[in-house]
Simulated assay, not measured.
Amino acid sequence: MSIDRANYPGVPEDFPVTAALSAVAGAQPKMSLVEEGGEFYSPGTSPSEVIAAFQMCDDLVSQMVRYCQRKLATFEGNQEATVKAALKGLLAKRWCTDAQCVWIMRRVVDELQWSVGESVWGI
């Protein structure tokens, strides 16, 4: 499924848009869809849902920047260990999708100008 990014103004191209799994009870086949602006979307992919998710994740970026700066001393200056622990904690909270958690932490690393290996993202 191709996503038209023009439907998501203000949302960066690299922000993960992931459909949420859903089920509808009954014997007849059904599809779970969200109608917005005369178009139908899989749950979690409508413009308003994606924009709301992006705004929440963008807010989490600024919070996680401050958190990682504070926690750096706990990990004796080890940036990679700090990021790995922060990502693990963020994933455990289940505030957003796993892909969005990784996106948040990649933005945090970019803002802090830290150098971390690719192994960090494989949690």
Rank of each mutant, 00 (worst) to 15 (best):
L112C: 15
A20H: 12
W114I: 08
V65N: 13
K30G: 01
V120N: 03
R5M: 10
V11A: 09
W121V: 04
G38A: 13
V102E: 10
V108S: 01
R70V: 00
K93E: 09
D4E: 14
T82R: 03
V102G: 09
I51N: 05
Y41Q: 01
E36K: 02
R70G: 00
I51M: 15
G44R: 07
V34N: 05
T82Q: 03
D110C: 00
F54K: 04
S2M: 13
K88G: 06
G44K: 06
S22D: 06
R5Q: 05
S62N: 10
V61G: 01
S119Q: 12
M1V: 13
D59F: 08
M64Y: 12
N7I: 03
P47V: 07
E111I: 12
A52I: 04
V61K: 00
A99V: 07
D14L: 05
R107Y: 01
S22H: 07
Y41N: 01
I104V: 15
A73E: 08
S46C: 11
Q79W: 07
G10V: 08
M56F: 07
A6Y: 04
A19H: 11
A86V: 06
T45A: 08
C96L: 14
S42P: 08
K71D: 12
S32G: 06
E76G: 01
Q79H: 13
M31T: 02
G37I: 09
L72N: 11
L21V: 10
C68R: 02
A27M: 00
R70E: 11
V50H: 11
V109P: 09
Q28W: 01
R107S: 08
